[in-house]
Design a protein around this nucleic acid. Structure first.
Lengths: 230, 230
DNA sequence: TATATTATTTTGTAGAACATATTATTTTTT
DNA sequence: AAAAAATAATATGTTCTACAAAATAATATA
């Protein structure tokens, strides 16, 4: 079918609104000028004149950049560039209800990949205190509930792992992915049993090697991988 | 110092602008009403009246949601909810020049974690064709350049690995992280030599086991980990 | 009935005006 | 002359009105 191919090959021409143009032009401007956090921008009047748009349209564009944390503005002082909160924007968009299934699945996998790859950072930065806390968490788990990744034990145990990496971005990322993970699992009604328990993982973290941990973590996650499509 | 503690404990009161309120209120509204992709929103006039703000302010808020890909609008038809492009917003913000050092470092590590955790997905989805392409890429590499992760071989080889996961989100994520990775490496002038080459990795993918690959990949990335702070 | 024309509706854009907060300047007071 | 108070100036925040443009609905015409 030629028409079907066409639909795939050429995506519909989208008329960029003036605001879209403002946004990209300003972003280009920042890049071109090599501006950095702290630098000041021209005033709204100057910008709107230079771009030949109304102040209204300009402000709609600026509003976007403000939301992303790229700029801040104060009365009389004007606008300044700021270090954006890179996960802030991500957070606004991560609503399982609105995401299509493919993306949900992708994010589910993304999280598995992350967990599988934590080993080195963990061994680099684990402390005695961390191990003790993990042991406490494991102790608190109900003995009957062998299911891993179930909401309760999930948040505390795996969350603690992320925390131990000392990587704030990673940690926040995990928290943001939690609802997605939960959503997928619930929707597919998966039953999850692993040969490697949380307790086993802690034990290896405590007195095992990195290599052992890598393999153990994979084994711990295996049930999840088994649900993935080839 | 009491003042210093205070600065840490209580963050400055930020007067939310009307636009900020509009944004969060509309987001709340969507959530509360349980609206999904495809559903239509009230008109701008209705919304601005309900929120008691000018149409201008309302539009600044909507502009943000539009940027995030949460809503689309057409003349006469009004606005509809859409599945957001979750990485689109991320992309807009990932400018190494604007990010603070801690975040750069975090993203660098994030990428290492991802690469370390790819093994299972790769073994789940690799094909003959993939392996052949990898071999071709390795063949093209200059024999003198044993440095891994250097821009050229990096983009093609590691990029191909991500591609093989069949996870579009993951793949795009990697592309977005490339500049960050490059930026960090250049700034720290790291010399990188690994015992495991790309060729080795391909060989294991071809006729080795998952476990071998996991360990090989870690070894391949080891030089990078060695630069990380404990 | 089919087609052409004309409203109607809703978003997109523009311009002017005023409010508000913050800095800069001037005036007054001591 | 120095300090304090009052005033002006400036840039962002907000509102209002008006019109353009596109897509749909309604009507008139062949």
């Amino acid at each position: 079918m030629a028409t079907k191919d066409l639909l795939n090959d050429l995506k519909p021409i989208q008329v960029n609104t003036r605001v879209d143009l403002v946004e990209s032009q300003i972003r280009e401007y920042l890049d071109k000028k090599g501006l950095r956090a702290g630098d000041t921008l021209p005033t709204e009047m100057e910008l709107s004149e230079a771009l030949a748009v109304s102040r209204n349209v300009l402000r709609e564009g600026l509003s976007r950049l403000r939301m992303l944390g790229l700029i801040e503005s104060k009365k009389k002082r004007g606008m300044t560039l700021t270090s954006p909160d890179i996960l802030g924007s991500f957070e606004r968009v991560l609503n399982p209800q609105l995401m299509d299934n493919a993306t949900l699945q992708n994010l589910f996998e993304l999280r598995l990949v992350l967990e599988s790859g934590l080993a080195d950072l963990l061994f680099l930065r684990k402390t005695e205190a961390d191990i003790k806390e993990l042991e406490a968490i494991v102790k608190r788990e109900k003995p009957a509930a062998t299911d891993v990744f179930r909401v309760n034990s999930e948040i505390s145990f795996h969350g603690k792992l992320y925390e131990m990496t000392g990587n704030e971005t990673l940690k926040r990322f995990q928290i943001m992915l939690l609802p997605v993970f939960d959503y997928v699992i619930k929707n597919e009604n998966r039953s999850i049993r692993s040969n490697i328990t949380h307790a086993d993982l802690v034990e290896i973290l405590k007195s095992g090697t990195k290599e052992e941990f890598v393999l153990a973590m994979r084994e711990h996650l295996r049930p999840h991988y088994e649900y993935l499509k080839p």
